[in-house]
């Protein structure tokens, strides 16, 4: 199929998005062509502004529009709690629960030696310094429940061992809305271990 040059370029650029193949890119391109100029400019401007204005908080590593993110600068947050997550988007998901009011620390990855990510790449020395400085009561490790996440959690727990802080790991269990018969035995065994009194 022969595209006009500008359309071809738009499709190529849209293909850069994760999960977007040529077909979907073409659909999106025609969607954009069908909108008014103002709407397309607003979309493009929002992308550029997000790229220009968003940075990572110098304290916790989550997304911020200033040196300090909203969580670190909020005096109402519980400063005795720190939740360690792998990615900035994990912070957003935890915030959506409305159950956590402490501080965050984003590792920007998990220990994965085969991908060249070791303790130095995760800047764990800075994390230890931050925990010491904050004088926390509890550190919650909320890394992903896969091998890299578990290995990172184990490494962190050992690293924090000399510090006067309680170290916990978020619970493992069954996803809401699922049937037990479809759960794998590892998730079920961990859910049994983490059962609670009713």
């Amino acid at each position: 199929m022969v595209y006009p040059g500008a359309l071809k370029k738009l499709v190529e650029v849209l293909c850069l998005f994760p999960g977007i193949g040529p077909k979907t890119a073409q659909r999106l391109a025609f969607f954009l062509l069908g909108r008014s100029r103002e709407e397309v400019v607003a979309i493009a401007r929002a992308m550029v502004e997000a790229k220009d204005r968003l940075t990572f908080c110098e304290h916790c590593g989550s997304l911020a529009e200033a040196e300090q993110c909203d969580y670190c600068s909020d005096p109402k947050r519980d400063r005795s709690l720190l939740c360690i997550v792998q990615e900035p988007r994990d912070v957003l998901v935890l915030e959506q629960t409305g159950k956590y009011r402490g501080l965050y620390h984003v590792l920007h990855g998990a220990l994965s030696p085969l991908d060249g990510i070791g303790p130095e790449e995760l800047k764990l020395d800075r994390l230890v310094q931050r925990i010491e400085k904050l004088g926390l009561e509890e550190v919650i490790i909320a890394t992903n429940p896969n091998v890299e996440g578990d290995a990172t959690a184990g490494y962190l727990a050992r690293l924090f061992n000399p510090l006067p802080v309680r170290v916990t790991r978020i619970a493992f269990g069954l996803p809401v809305g699922g049937d037990i018969e479809y759960a794998d035995e590892l998730t079920l065994s961990r859910a049994l271990e983490g059962r609670r009194e009713m």
């Binding site: 091998v147 290995a151 184990g154 727990a157 590892l186």
Partner: peptide
Amino acid sequence: LWFREDPELY
């Protein structure tokens, strides 16, 4: 499981 539970074995 020992590889994911023990950081020394990993």
